[in-house]
Amino acid sequence: MHNADDESSEIATEVSDLRSVPLDEMTTRENELSGALHRLLPFSPDDARVPVAAFNSSI
């Protein structure tokens, strides 16, 4: 276990900083988009989340 709890620490978020990513590039950045959409639209079809934890011992 690891803590990052001291007063001076920065709390990392799951929201990518997209301010300087060109808009026309963003449509291809699947992970960054899904990260944002996951937080704004938890049940969005665009949020390609897998609803279950997939069995580890097969592929």
Binding site: E14, N31, R39, V50, A53, A54
Partner: peptide
């Protein structure tokens, strides 16, 4: 690479592709 993709996906708030990591419920 399922493990690496899962870390990248969960880093951005998405879901893991494997029960090896992530907080999704097991329905197995």
């Amino acid at each position: 690479v399922r493990l690496f993709e899962s870390i990248i996906r969960t880093t951005h708030g998405g879901a893991s592709l494997t029960e090896a990591i992530g907080l999704q419920p097991s329905t197995l």
